[in-house]
Amino acid sequence: MKDIKIEVCAGSYEDCLAAARGKADRVELNSALALGGLSPTEATLRLVKRDTDLKVICMVRPRGAGFHYTEVERKVMMAEAKSFLENGADGIAFGFLNADGTIDVEATKEMIDLIHSYNKEAVFHRAVDVTPDFEEAFRILVELKADRVLTSGQEEKAMQGKEQIKKMQELFGDQIEILAGSGMNATNAMEMIQETGIHQIHSSCKGYDNDPTTSGEKVTYSYLAGEHANDYDVVKEELVARLMAAIGR
């Protein structure tokens, strides 16, 4: 079996420090994880590269809804990607779809070509999970020479989609890396690896910290509900370490 790689979904510099202390291999660096992950700041990227040995894949995403972008949004995404690549990013995570959900070949090729011009990794993210033809989407990404795909197998959680992930690994695993994400943790990582043949796991390793200033008597800024109403989600070092131990590292 190939070496297993663990990628942590990070929403901040502090998240990346926790991932590094837990011995993760790589982070996908975002902002605004509550919106599904948006582009991080250049300053955060520079700090992470200065203070850790992590490989950093920067998310490029301008808004928290959908993946069919305007020309203006696409222009911004390309500029952000270029800036990240010039400031130490080891790759870019992105996803371009047409209005019908199929892969936007032109925009995807443009982004991949830009990333590869810096000899960095082009990662198509979970936009692939809302495409109408999963196999065809993979075929296109292979043809465009994407390096990796993050997927839950078109299900809410990756363990629910493991049969699809296994099928894509069998069809395309020798041509593109497959990274399983959504609901992955120390309790299920090895099952996913053993049953699908993939060797990369993406996990949030998520816990919560509390900030009592989130809510006042009449005003609240909470984006979580119930018992976590005054909390915010963070990467927990112990969960990263537990995941690394679960894969024997």
Results as ranks from 00 to 15, higher is better:
Glu156Cys: 08
Leu144Val: 06
Lys167Ala: 11
Met168Asp: 07
Met159Asn: 10
Leu144Glu: 01
Ala158Cys: 10
His228Trp: 02
Glu217Asp: 15
Glu135Ala: 13
Gly183Lys: 00
His116Trp: 09
Tyr118Ala: 01
Arg148Gln: 04
Tyr223Cys: 14
Gln194Glu: 12
Gly173Arg: 10
Ser117Asp: 02
Glu163His: 03
Asp113Cys: 05
Glu227Ala: 15
Ile193Ser: 01
Asp129Trp: 06
Met168Leu: 06
Tyr118Cys: 01
Val149Asp: 05
Ile176Gly: 01
Ala229Pro: 07
Ser203Val: 03
Gly181Thr: 03
Val128Glu: 08
Leu171Phe: 09
Glu156Tyr: 02
Thr196Tyr: 07
Phe172Trp: 02
Ser182Ala: 14
Thr151Lys: 04
Ser203Arg: 03
Met159Cys: 09
Thr151Met: 10
Leu114Gly: 12
Met168Ser: 08
Ile115Asp: 04
Ser117Cys: 04
Ala127Val: 05
Ile198Gln: 04
Glu156Val: 11
Val123His: 06
Val219Phe: 15
Asp211Ala: 10
Ser204Thr: 11
Pro132Trp: 07
Ala229Asp: 14
Thr214Val: 15
Gly153Asp: 03
His116Cys: 01
Asp113Glu: 15
Ile140Cys: 11
Lys157Arg: 11
Thr131Trp: 07
Val130Tyr: 01
Glu170Thr: 12
Leu179His: 08
Gly197Glu: 09
Gly207Gln: 02
Ser215Pro: 02
Ser182Glu: 11
Val128Ala: 13
Glu227Pro: 14
Asp174Ala: 06
Gln160Leu: 14
Lys167Asp: 12
His116Glu: 00
Leu171Pro: 00
Asp174Cys: 02
Ser117Val: 06
Ser222Met: 00
Asn188Val: 12
Ile140Arg: 10
Lys120Ile: 02
Cys205Trp: 00
Tyr118Val: 03
Thr220Phe: 08
Thr187Ser: 12
His116Ser: 01
Met192Asp: 02
Arg139Phe: 08
Met190Phe: 04
Arg139Ser: 09
Ser117Gly: 04
Glu170Phe: 12
Arg139Glu: 09
Gly226Trp: 06
His202Arg: 11
Asp147Cys: 03
Gln160Thr: 04
Tyr221Ala: 15
Lys120Cys: 05
Cys205Phe: 02
Ile198Val: 03
Glu143Leu: 10
His228Arg: 10
